[in-house]
Every structure is written in structure tokens, then in C-alpha cells.
């Protein structure tokens, strides 16, 4: 989530794909935080091409506040329905976390109603956690619904995906962990997201998972990320794109892997921070089977012939972008 002024220079193309493509040939990636609802089919295609085999879409704020319960319900429903199906068309396994985000927790009248429908969604197939929840402005209302959702996660036996605030980040992160422990959550069931150099040490020391969002301008850059992995090693660290409706990059995970490779981080360590750790953390939900990552590809093939959807009648699943002909 950012608000960056777009100028001529920032619209220029950066480093081109082929320059780092070889670095990550054959690697598989898991992006545990990406808001695909805000992205296009071009992104799905590019992610699949870059080796992203599975992803998690946390429920979040859509850029403007919702005004009623039904839009929340439809949004949750689209995460487990249409968006999951759309991803499968590109051979990508789509999971989600369901929760009431911190910003909208401040609309208490609505938040109460949302809390009532959350149990209907957290038990759904492919829901791998309660998230993203936590603090934004660090208000009393935010705290109230954060606590209630920690209890919900505990009852459902699901991991928690914590959004840490942009403002007053360090204190907000500490406070988020304090409260999770106070509610008796096992830190191994909690993924603390949007870390930076200032927060990572405490998160790891206290036994939580530390997720890093590679997001231009407002969060981590991937060169800094390489240094973090060099300093702390790969244990309990994971990388995500958090790509959304802002200027962000759905290829952040593969690009970061390429940079790590180039800067001498071992292939095994890269695998841990860009794939395995996220799988391990969220598989505690009992909802992730790695074999599904490959079967979604074959399902996609059969569905293509059974005919669907983002593919209209008789349409090929891929378009050659360099061709001038559109058929």
C-alpha cells in the first residue's frame, strides 16, 4: 500500500527479465502474500513463467472502506471462489487467509457484523490462516478485533498472518507479538509480516516467523533483503510481494531469488526463504499439500478442454504477446 507520485522517469522500464531469468531457471516459488484480486491475467502469466507455483492471498483493505456486510461477504467469497479458480487457469495454486483488516476494524458497527460471518469462512477448504490482521493506527478498536481474531484462529487451529503497521512500526510489531503470546498462541503458528532491519531480530528471537515484503518505495527493497538473509540466515524467514493495487511487483519473490543467487546465497537457502518456509508455516493449517502445486497444472489442462471462463469458447490459454494478430 503506497502513494507514490508517478513521473516520466518512474514509468521507464527497468532491468529486463532475460537478464536474471537464467539465475532462477527451474526454481519453484511460493508467494505467501499477494493480493491477486487487484492484478491482471498478465501478472498471473508472468508469475507462472517465473516459477511461482502457489500463493496466499490475505484478505485486506481494498483501498477504500466498505460500507456494508455484504461487500465483505462477497469479497471473502471471491477469495475462495473466483480468484482461486482464476489462478488455477494459470496453473497456480491459490490459498487465502481470511480476516478483518486493521483499518476497517475501526468501523465498529460493521466490524461486529463481520466478526459474526468470519467463522463461516475460516473453516473453508484452502483457507490457511486468519489474516491479515493486526494494527494500522494502533487504536483501541483495532486491538479489540485483533484479540477476537486471535481467539478465532486458536479455536480453528489456524496460523495467524500479522500485518505490522507502517507508522510506529517497531512498537506496533512488539505489541502485536505481546498480545499474541498473551492469548496463548504458539509463536510457531504466527507469521509476522512486513518486517524490516529494525524488527527482524526481536521477531526471530521470540520464535515467530518473520516475513518480508519486497515492495518498492514503502517497504523492503530486495538488495536490503539479501543482506538480511546474509546476516540472519534462512531459518523462519520468508519473502513475499504483497503486490496489490499500488505500484508493486508480483515478481518480487522470483526477482529476489535471482538477486540472492547472484550475490552468493546458496540455492538451498534461497529455496527456504522463497518457498519452503512459507509452505511449512502455513501447512500447519492442514490445508496445503505440495502435491497440489503440480496437480493444479493438470487440472488446468483438463479444464481448458472442458472449457471455462477466463478462457472464452475455444480460446487458447496463452496469447503470444509479440504477435500483432489478435484472433
Amino acid at each position: 500500500m503506497c502513494c507514490h507520485t508517478i513521473d516520466e522517469e518512474s514509468l521507464q522500464r527497468g532491468e529486463k527479465w532475460p537478464l536474471y531469468k537464467e539465475q532462477i531457471a527451474g526454481m519453484q516459488f511460493f508467494d505467501p502474500h499477494v493480493h491477486m484480486t487487484s492484478r491482471t491475467t498478465d501478472d498471473y502469466q508472468a508469475m507462472a513463467d517465473a516459477g511461482v507455483v502457489a500463493l496466499i492471498e490475505p484478505a485486506f483493505w481494498l483501498g477504500q472502506p466498505r460500507t456494508g456486510l455484504d461487500t465483505f461477504r462477497d469479497y471473502y467469497s471471491s477469495l475462495i471462489g473466483w480468484e482461486r479458480f482464476r489462478a488455477s487457469q494459470f496453473g497456480i495454486k491459490h490459498y487465502c487467509t481470511i480476516g478483518l483488516n486493521s483499518r476497517e476494524a475501526n468501523n465498529e458497527a460493521l466490524a461486529e457484523q463481520v466478526m459474526e460471518i468470519l467463522p463461516l469462512f475460516v473453516y473453508k477448504e484452502g483457507v490457511v490462516g486468519v489474516g491479515e490482521i493486526g494494527f494500522d493506527d494502533q487504536t483501541a478498536a483495532e486491538e479489540k478485533y485483533y484479540r477476537l481474531q486471535l481467539e478465532l484462529a486458536k479455536e480453528a487451529g489456524l496460523p495467524v498472518q500479522i500485518h505490522t503497521p507502517h507508522r510506529d512500526k517497531k512498537k506496533g510489531t512488539t505489541r502485536s507479538m505481546d498480545i499474541a503470546l498473551e492469548h496463548g498462541l504458539d509463536p510457531r503458528m504466527v507469521i509476522v509480516d512486513h518486517n524490516n532491519e529494525e524488527t527482524v531480530k526481536e521477531v526471530l528471537d521470540r520464535g515467530f516467523w518473520a516475513a518480508f515484503t519486497i515492495y518498492p518505495f514503502t517497504k523492503m527493497g530486495n538488495e536490503r533483503m539479501v543482506d538480511v538473509v546474509k546476516q540472519y540466515g534462512p531459518e523462519r524467514i520468508m519473502v513475499n510481494s504483497a503486490a496489490d493495487w499500488g505500484i508493486s511487483d508480483p515478481l518480487a519473490v522470483p526477482k529476489t531469488a535471482a538477486l540472492m543467487k547472484e550475490r552468493g546465497i546458496s540455492v538451498e537457502d534461497i529455496r527456504l526463504v522463497t518457498y519452503q518456509n512459507a509452505v511449512t508455516a502455513f501447512a500447519q493449517s492442514g490445508q496445503i499439500e505440495e502435491s497440489d502445486f503440480s496437480s493444479v497444472k493438470s487440472i488446468d489442462q483438463s479444464q481448458k478442454f472442458a472449457g471455462n471462463t477466463v478462457l472464452r469458447g475455444g480460446q487458447a490459454p496463452r496469447v503470444d504477446k509479440d504477435s500483432v494478430f489478435i484472433r
Partner: peptide, 9 residues
């Protein structure tokens, strides 16, 4: 129906 995911539908 309104809250159903694909396999539920």
C-alpha cells in the same frame, strides 16, 4: 450459496 467456495457450489 452466497458464501460457498467452488467445491461447495
Amino acid at each position: 450459496f452466497p458464501a460457498a467456495e467452488m467445491n461447495e457450489l
